[in-house]
Write a protein that binds this DNA or RNA. Sequence first.
DNA 1: GCCGTTTTCGGCCCGACTGTTTTCAGTCG
Length: 600
Amino acid sequence: MAAEAGKPDRLSNRDVAAILANVADMLQILDANRFRIIAFQNAAEAIRTLGQDIRVVHAEGKLQTISGVGKGIADALDELLTEGRVEEFDKLKEKIPPGVVEMIHIPDVGPKTAKRLWDELGITSVEELRQAAEAGRIRELKGFGAKSEQKILKGIELAAKRGDERTPLGEARPLALRLIEELIEATPEEGITRIEAAGSLRRWRETIGDVDILAISPQSQTVIEAFQKLPQVVDVAGSGETKCSVILTTGLRVDLRVVEPKHWGAALQYFTGSKEHNVQVRELAQRQGWSLNEYGLTATGAGDAAEGEQRFFAEEAELYAFLGMACPPPELRENRGEVKAAREGVLPELVRLEDIRGELHGHSTWSDGTASIAAMAEAARQRGYSYWNVADHSTGLGMVGGLDSKRLREQSDEIAALNEQWREAGEEFRLLRGTEVEILSDGALGLPDEALAELDVVVASIHSGLRQDRETITERCLKAVRNPHVDILGHATGRLIGSRPPSEIDMERILRVCAETGTVVEINAHPSRLDVNDVYARRAVELGCKIAINSDAHETSGMEMMEYGIAVARRAWLRAADVINTYPLDKMLAALKDRRGEAA
DNA sequence: GCCGTTTTCGGCCCGACTGTTTTCAGTCG
């Protein structure tokens, strides 16, 4: 947590969300009203995924326009963002040692357990908890035994291994898909008739807490036994008749749930989440006189149907239709307005992988790529693209031997020759001449304007000096964005999921200037970047920006990462029209800054 | 503490599994 008291101007949305979540944790330990706890959790989530800087919203006096923020929390946020601290929160902190709050993040240790361990054994840290469990002191408590101690020790080990980190989607997804394949192979013929990953994986969240797999099988016990015996499984956290949780060698937790065919629709809906989306849907069902669980609907007697009457759904869409709404694509199910839109029938037609006609940011052996331009072009053609922008690094990024003006011209000759071949063969495919020009530490670019002016598509990115202070890095980036030759701002925040935090850059200001100048904002599709993220992408389009989705491929297989970028765009509610590389070549070029209006 | 197609009070989702229990509380998703 980077929240520094006394420096309210440094608090990011993430910091503010962490502070509210911490308050919710403390309230849980104090056994406060559960709805008050949920209110803090909801507000934290709303601010974490807010498209705008919380400081800006605060300055405009619009805190209460955030869904989940009412008067009470708005007042607290006002105090936090003005004073850098909240008196009410400080009083809470005096009541509970921070180590006790930390304890509830250990699997199988919740607020009740943490409170009792603290009250009755005086344990105030995870380390003390470990020692007490090893010494067999915890079994002295009523309701605890040797197994509880083992469970706690295992939980501590797991938490240490995993840290607070969720698993990046790019790691979890291939792992889960392979696991599903192996489970099918390990099960007798006809053992599994349907299987799908649900949860945050199906929603394509950028990081995954644990993997949820849903299956239909006439022999659930056989499937669950096979699941536990898969080679990647190191531990079984729980196992019953229809449900099983295992831990993989990587520390990732995977839950399998086996259901009957008639329950599939409700079960898939339920296990896809998000939790917040499901709460909305269940409340909607409640208002219509139905109680919703993972099996289906049961009439409460409050509506037209007789109490106890049940409805089952083989498909998700049938369940949503019964409730009078369209079926929101999983990527939208984050309680960001999708339930209302689905009820009103105004869900957007989201961009799809098939809509992509080319890429505007990729590398070759001319800089740090591993494949020739010809090989990259061939890979792009194989994917059905009709254009690909050669965007090798410019000078200014020492370690990869970026191109200067002279080498850029030499590269242009190679590109022209390749294009000539396709033209003669009557092929539609075209390579574009581009660069990923370095935004230097003072905002100057790694190539002179004369060189950039000759290119088709210029991507400008920051690779170093990512720790500059907010004002410096924002001004640096703004200078680049305002350059008339810069068409696209590449991976704007510079983050690497799980290993490098985003820079301090003021995205709201950047996006506003991008909208003003017609600079396209990139969604970098590489699963370790996903930059900009869904929240900023949605905000960018709200402000009037266009988006480009690029895999930033450094090898031919890198282009397969496009699907992750598409997922970010879909989570941002983007339609094909918002994404310029869904356009045919002429229209795409005409949408670029320095060519606007040139072609139809 | 939040919120409104039951609107300014009275609600706020629901079931599986575990451990230590004789009927359930805690945790998790």
